[in-house]
Design a protein around this nucleic acid. Structure first.
Lengths: 238, 238
DNA sequence: GTCTATATAATGATAGAC
DNA sequence: GTCTATCATTATATAGAC
């Protein structure tokens, strides 16, 4: 037998015990959080507790391999559906597929724990959002922004943050949580106000924005005056 | 950062040992999360570990009293600044005041843990947002919504969720986190895209919203047609 | 009220038999 | 490779001395 799975993340040929433990760990971590013990994971995988550490060295080693695997699956799946619309849409789609439901739950837990995986995914989503928004601007569907990068980050932060908070409160309400149902409810409850905000805004006029832009211009000018020569070219927008 | 003030020259009437332990627990929970042990709390309070449980019975009892106290402070402070603008603004203001900074951190931890306190505060914020938005609509500053309650919940979910995610990622980046600085950066980074979205929306036209409203109308009509036949009228909810 | 000392349980990690 | 058995640590909670 060859099967040199020294390195992590081989998602095919998943019959090996090592992969079974990893999948079980993802499922247990997803359901019970990262405070779950090695014994629970071993029981879910149908192996002895000692075997877990024999394969992964430690609990952190197991965590690292789970993170690596999940990130790898996400990246591969995103490559498949490159045309998925909107920020955080890939994660939503993910939860709709039974096979990937534990991965979605694992990602939610990972965001809550605040470790590396969540932030890697977040930065990836920000990049995707910026690219997608740029396409929307080019096609005329999306208004241009004075700072496209900041807008992409802001929208991603809002969408991901809102979904995480929604899932978290729902998780607290009824455990175990059905993520597919929760995602559907999330989209259903928030579709109208989200479309209202995106289509019409919230404020009746742009006085707040104008005031902010005015103060920003003043600040920029005074900063300009300190560091450079007084250049008279005022960059006024719109 | 420390809420634990040694009773040397403290003029507050609150300096009973029980209150000192409670304040120390809030500070330790805020900094280290709710996995912090009773020993760490006892050390921060300057008492023995046994005394903690002597006063509060158990760790859960201590948690409950901390939650109760924090919620009480928030309610009292909100009563002071009833005119605070915008959703989640009360929490932001809170972090700007040195005295209340540990409370803000505790609340962030509480949201992350997903226990009762976070949700109590959230529902409170939703109500505040709805009321505040209603005032804005009445004064003409805010556009009316087709579903004001859903909009208030959506905006609160976005604002709180975004702030929590921001704090969490920042907390992971540099510990211990300076919440006042983090709040300022949060507001500074996101002010422009937020004002853009609130003032101008994101989409160039309302075709997405119109399409949604059309399907909703169709769904409502067909649902209407179904419930209009009263052969078994046991269910009468919408 | 407050402390020291301890009981009990669960954790991660390890050693050795097969 | 896989298991059983165990170590060492840490957690909460409790009992008893002062």
């Amino acid at each position: 037998m060859r099967l040199t799975n020294d390195d992590a993340g081989d998602s095919r040929s998943d019959l090996t015990t090592r992969a079974r433990i990893r999948d079980a760990a993802i499922a247990v971590f997803a359901e019970s959080g990262f405070t779950a013990g090695l014994r629970a994971i071993a029981a879910a995988a149908g192996v002895s507790p000692g075997l877990v550490n024999h394969h992964f060295g430690s609990k952190d080693g197991l965590r690292a391999e789970c993170d690596k695997y999940v990130l790898d699956v996400i990246r591969r799946r995103k490559a498949e559906a490159i045309a998925t619309p909107g920020p955080a849409q890939a994660m939503k789609d993910l939860a709709e597929i039974d096979e990937y439901a534990p991965l979605f739950a694992y990602i939610v837990r990972s965001f809550q724990a605040g470790d590396g995986l969540g932030e890697s995914l977040f930065e990836q989503m920000v990049q995707d959002a910026e690219q997608y928004l740029e396409m929307g601007v080019a096609s005329g569907q999306v208004r241009p922004s004075r700072d496209p990068a900041a807008r992409a980050r802001y929208l991603t932060l809002n969408n991901v943050g809102a979904m995480l908070l929604y899932m978290q409160m729902r998780m607290h309400r009824d455990t175990p949580i059905d993520y597919r149902e929760a995602i559907r409810d999330f989209a259903g409850d928030l579709a109208l106000p989200a479309l209202e905000l995106y289509s019409e805004g919230l404020f009746s006029d742009s006085s707040m924005l104008d005031a902010y832009l005015a103060t920003e211009d003043v600040a920029a000018q005074s900063e300009d005056a300190e560091t450079r020569q007084p250049d008279s070219t005022t960059e006024e927008q719109k």
